[in-house]
Write a protein that binds this DNA or RNA. Structure first.
Lengths: 217, 217
DNA sequence: GTCTATAGATGGATAGAC
DNA sequence: GTCTATCCATCTATAGAC
């Protein structure tokens, strides 16, 4: 993976981003050393400081850039017209495709929030809230038009995002299903979730189960 | 948080587990120092080695113990009779309650898999697969009886687990909803997901969306 | 922009007294 | 079982030559 020593400027910057992404994905922020990063790029460790002021700034830039790309791509893909179901389908297709194409970036943006210093974290969390709101607006619309029967649109938002974002934890390009197939299957599941009334199968209260779990704590 | 110096044996062991859980949850394995851990417990750092051979063994024990508890609690709660819908409802109620009661343990068991050495990871992944299979069996049963219309039960398993496990990322005891309310809402969403056919709202292929996302990469 | 060299701090783990 | 003291490795970040 080592590059030619002496390669300069933009090429090095891009190499650092790529290698950093891979190392963050594999080892995590705290376990990724700048010596490793420099070795992957093919430069000496001190030279990295020509590209960022410190390790934290490097992480923050990587995450913020990804969140900006995500928003831009969503805005380009999302329908502003059509039924709520159509918009939801577009959202799912977009989100699935984006997560399948950038599993590393997506994973880091979830898993390394804890590694951000408070001020930086605040910025990213705000961007994430905006993204959630765009899905929330679709679910709210669907409830107004009667297309969706969700008991709670906020919980629906969180459930759908968790379900879709989980894809980057198991999807493999050489796996059983193509991107299109995954998109189709998840679109079906999300639409069913949003439309269905999902009345309970059993009426008995779940309290005893909770106690059981507590006993084993 | 410091405890009385000189406290011995089982009390210290329990204190180490509790403090370790908190530190792993807050900072992660790589960023958690044994000096921090010892300080939280109220002992000196060297004394920790009376309770584990090294840091890795401590993490592994914590995760393995949690997975064992999870399996035992599920087996105690899961119906072996009844319709697939009833069993699925029980599964969701159990899983939600368990995750709400132990958000830290659950979070660590997902986020620190990367910190396990290969042999240890293998053990945990096998336990996790067993857990997934128990949900998968319910979905398969439902498809055989015609209760469920899932396009792909394996994807259904992954989707449901991601959706439910995401709860520990946002649930707060002092939040808007009680445990019972969260259980009821998620039961409804999961049952709707499993039952619904979820035909697409739009027939057009999603290929252009994928290209759009790629353009912004 | 890259290199070498190093400061300064912190980490996991061990040894031996009590 | 807990303490003190320490070894040795590794880390981020900086300084200055080329």
């Amino acid at each position: 993976m080592a590059r030619i020593a002496g390669s300069s400027g933009p090429r090095t910057e891009e190499a650092i981003r790529r290698a950093g992404l891979q190392l963050l994905y594999t080892h995590g922020y705290a376990a990724m050393s700048l010596r490793q990063l420099a070795a992957e790029v093919g430069i000496q460790q001190g030279s990295l400081y020509n590209y960022f002021r410190n390790k934290q700034e490097f992480l923050f830039d990587l995450i913020r850039t990804h969140m900006q790309d995500l928003h831009a791509a969503l805005d380009a893909a999302l329908l502003r017209e059509g039924s709520a179901a159509e918009r939801l389908q577009r959202f799912v297709e977009f989100h699935v495709a984006y997560h399948i194409e950038r599993p590393q970036q997506v994973f880091i943006c979830y898993s390394e929030l804890r590694s951000l210093e408070p001020d930086n974290l605040e910025v990213i969390v705000a961007m994430r809230r905006d993204y959630e709101r765009k899905l929330g607006a679709i679910l709210d619309l669907g409830r107004e038009t009667g297309e969706f029967q969700l008991a709670d649109t906020r919980m629906g938002t969180l459930a759908i995002l968790a379900m879709l974002s989980g894809i980057c934890n198991w999807y493999r390009p050489d796996g059983r299903l193509s991107t299109d197939a995954v998109q189709a299957i998840f679109t079906g599941m999300v639409l069913a979730l949003a439309r269905g009334e999902g009345e309970a199968a059993v009426q008995a209260p779940p309290a005893p189960l909770t106690r059981l779990a507590a006993r084993l704590r």
